[in-house]
Amino acid sequence: MTEQPWATKFEETLRGFLPLLPDTEPIRPDLRLSDLGLDSLATVSLLLEVEEAFDVTIPDHLLTEDTFATPAGLWSVVDSLLVRDPVD
């Protein structure tokens, strides 16, 4: 089994917005989210849920079609905004 490049919480949140993705199908980084049922209204809801789940605010300049095109694109933005504890 291949480990996904994102947090489990991200996948669980994202899956809730993809009504056309079968429960048994994995979320691949390159899946086209719009092909799986993510429309403009759902994108706004997904944005709010992701921001809340990860305690981040996605700045306006990153609210692009590319950001929400694939799981990898969205995770890349979220991951870049996460506050990391410095390594001692």
Rank of each mutant, 00 (worst) to 15 (best):
M1Q: 10
M1C: 11
E3M: 08
E3W: 05
Q4V: 08
Q4A: 15
W6V: 13
W6F: 15
W6R: 14
W6C: 14
A7V: 07
A7P: 01
T8W: 05
T8F: 06
T8S: 13
T8A: 15
K9N: 10
F10T: 11
E11N: 07
E11G: 12
E12R: 14
E12N: 15
T13P: 11
L14A: 01
L14Q: 02
R15Q: 06
R15W: 06
R15T: 08
G16Y: 12
G16I: 13
G16T: 09
P19F: 11
P19C: 10
P19R: 10
L21N: 03
P22A: 04
P22K: 08
P22E: 09
D23W: 08
D23M: 12
E25G: 00
E25Y: 05
P26S: 04
P26H: 01
I27S: 07
I27E: 05
I27D: 04
R28P: 00
R28L: 12
R28S: 11
R28D: 07
R28W: 04
R28G: 08
D30L: 01
D30T: 10
D30Y: 03
R32M: 06
R32W: 01
S34M: 09
S34F: 12
S34T: 14
S34W: 13
D35W: 01
L36Y: 10
L36E: 08
G37D: 07
L38P: 09
S40F: 06
L41N: 08
L41V: 13
A42Q: 13
T43K: 03
V44L: 14
V44M: 12
V44K: 01
S45F: 03
S45W: 02
L47I: 06
L48P: 00
L48S: 02
L48M: 12
L48N: 01
E49V: 01
E51F: 11
E51M: 09
E51T: 00
E51R: 10
E52G: 03
A53S: 12
F54W: 09
T57E: 15
P59Q: 06
P59I: 03
H61W: 05
H61L: 06
L62T: 00
L62A: 02
L63I: 14
L63W: 07
E65A: 10
D66Q: 15
T67D: 11
F68N: 00
F68T: 00
A69L: 14
A69Y: 04
A69V: 04
T70A: 00
P71D: 06
P71T: 02
A72R: 11
G73S: 14
L74P: 08
W75Y: 06
W75G: 07
W75L: 03
W75C: 07
W75K: 03
S76Q: 11
S76W: 00
V77D: 01
V77Q: 02
D79E: 15
S80T: 10
L81R: 07
L81P: 00
L82S: 04
L82C: 09
R84L: 13
P86A: 15
P86M: 12
V87N: 08
V87L: 14
V87T: 13
